[in-house]
Design a protein around this nucleic acid. Structure first.
Lengths: 326, 326
DNA sequence: AACACCTATCGAATCGTTTCGACTAGTATG
DNA sequence: CATACTAGTCGAAACGATTCGATAGGTGTT
């Protein structure tokens, strides 16, 4: 108690929190004492214990930082959330690799001083993580996953969104189409996007699952789809813009022109300043999604129930789709 | 005290921490009681108060998440750090926009339950942030900035590294060269890289400062350098790979071929799977840098002094540099 | 002059752990 | 059989704040 120097701890607390009425003379005296004692303000941990709030929100990734944040879309969403958390004075505690090393991640999660948790980039994942968090009685918000009654969600309707681009491609006359999905077919958004394609193309759809979410993985998956020159699809719909770039690279290396020989579409609508061709894609409001999710956290913290939020996505027609060659 | 149900709090603590000797029967009983009471393990905040450790490290950015993590190099470094923190069971609390909204960021920093802080992507920044952190007597680690006696650093020698590529370009015969720097000429690494170029090219160097760290900013800065067809530089050295891509885009839009009409170099040595041409650049060990910095944090936490770490960078010659046209 | 009211300050309880030292039974050792 | 040791359990003292209610003066009203 650095504060015994001058006055009671209660008064010192009042000085630092700026709550109660304090005489100017006293305030000055306390501040001076703190200064001379090298006291740097109230201990946040002790304050948290008393107030029951730590000002920290867990942000949970299924995989590594590298894998997750390689994608500009994820960075955009995270930034949207960060802006709001910033305003609210909440910090973001990054918890990664929840899928892999679940023991460690689980232990870390239970030991983390948090007021709420946001499932940032997750699949259905391990039930135990959700259970452990739910046991703490804190607000839980997800960006579409994992699906759980205890988690409030903020997401687009992936099935409807994917349908937009699927119908655009179908409308151009494509019938044999390929699909490059993100890793984890079980993940709700992947499953929904896949379902939309099945809705539109039925059994003419060929699916390849990317091993990771990067450009290279998209290229690799596309090669598999394009390997057989005879049954080659005339269009490939990727589950993300990054994967779509990979698809276009695969096409190029096989001597296929986009869109003349192969139509390619993405998903997310992110800015790709280094890519020359405007991509046909489905734009979803990334920054807004993060921000809205963060506000759901705020509401949860305020004790308000909070209903799921469904955002709108829209089709962006670029220069990577065209009618199939005859 | 959910634990009054069965035994003393001390014994319950022993059960959950797994430290002291506990009879199997007792353990079972305590666990059962916890289960039935919906008790999800010890409160992390209270535990932190007692032990003096929160298991959280602040990771500080000067600017926004979006601005910082747009660059794959930063993501790589962050991932390197995250892997080590993960192993150590430490969480990362992201604190952004320290430069802009310093009031808010400062308040947030003082109220954050942290055991150490890492200046992740910072310039010299505001003194008050460092002071406030230093007052808490916690280990402070930086990735080259801000320079301060209280901060242990882990970085390459930017001046030496930039000199590698500068000498490569000079060796090819270039004399009129341009430079595209990262934002903030005051930042130590920017200043050092600039100094290296002055060392090599003297007053033949023309400098343009990018407004942000993205591709577009590189393009914009390069346009300024290439505007005058008469005194046009024959080579442009960018302070990051992303900026270099922007420079190449500017060149292309002006009808200049790389490397025939213009040599371009980058800095960082990051993987650009979407870019067709291998870039001449200086590769620095990004992941390792993050990891080593995280280990410095660990050492600091263990009470060991910790000396600055200097990593090595090396020249990577790609296909974007050639002798100047005559 | 009695009363109410507001300002400034303080005491004490509380938040939920961890940890140290003490205590009790058993069990092994001499 | 006395002594020493071990395993298992518990009580109580921190950790460092916030906050409620009490108290003591000072000021204003009637």
């Amino acid at each position: 108690m650095a504060r015994l120097a001058e006055v009671s701890t209660s008064t010192a607390s009042l000085v630092f929190s700026g709550k109660g009425p304090v005489a100017d003379a006293t305030r000055t005296r306390v501040l001076a004492a703190a200064e001379s004692l090298g006291y740097g303000g109230p201990d946040p941990v002790a304050a948290s214990l008393r107030t029951g709030r730590s000002g920290v929100v867990a942000v949970i990734f299924d995989s590594s930082i590298q894998e997750t944040l390689h994608d500009p879309y994820q960075v955009l969403v995270l930034d949207g959330a960060a802006s709001v958390f910033d305003e609210l004075g909440l910090g973001m505690l990054i918890i990664g690799r929840v899928r892999d090393e679940s023991e460690r991640a689980l232990a870390q999660l239970s030991a983390a001083p948090i007021d709420a948790a946001m499932f940032f980039s997750c699949g259905q994942g391990r039930r135990s993580v959700v259970d452990s968090l739910a046991a703490r009685q804190i607000p839980l918000v997800g960006l579409g996953a994992p699906r759980d009654p205890r988690i409030v969600q903020c997401d687009i309707d992936s099935r409807v969104a994917m349908r937009l681009v699927a119908e655009h491609v179908a409308g151009l006359g494509h019938q044999r189409v390929g699909e490059v999905t993100l890793p984890d077919l079980q993940a709700p958004h992947t499953a929904a996007r896949h379902a939309a394609l099945v809705d539109v193309f039925g059994s003419d759809l060929v699916t390849a699952e990317a091993t990771l979410s990067g450009v290279e993985s998209g290229e690799q998956a596309a090669r598999a789809l394009l390997a057989d020159p005879v049954h080659r699809p005339t269009a490939i719909l990727a589950h993300s813009d990054l994967l779509a770039v990979g698809v276009m690279q695969a096409a190029e290396s096989l001597g296929l022109r986009v869109p003349e020989d192969l139509s390619v579409t993405g998903f997310d609508g992110v800015d790709l300043p280094w890519w020359p061709t405007p991509l046909t894609t489905v734009a979803q409001p990334g920054s807004d999604k993060g921000a809205r999710a963060a506000r759901l956290v705020r509401d949860g913290l305020a004790g308000e129930p909070g209903r799921d939020v469904v955002l709108q996505a829209h089709l962006v027609v670029g220069a990577t789709t065209a009618p199939p060659a005859v």
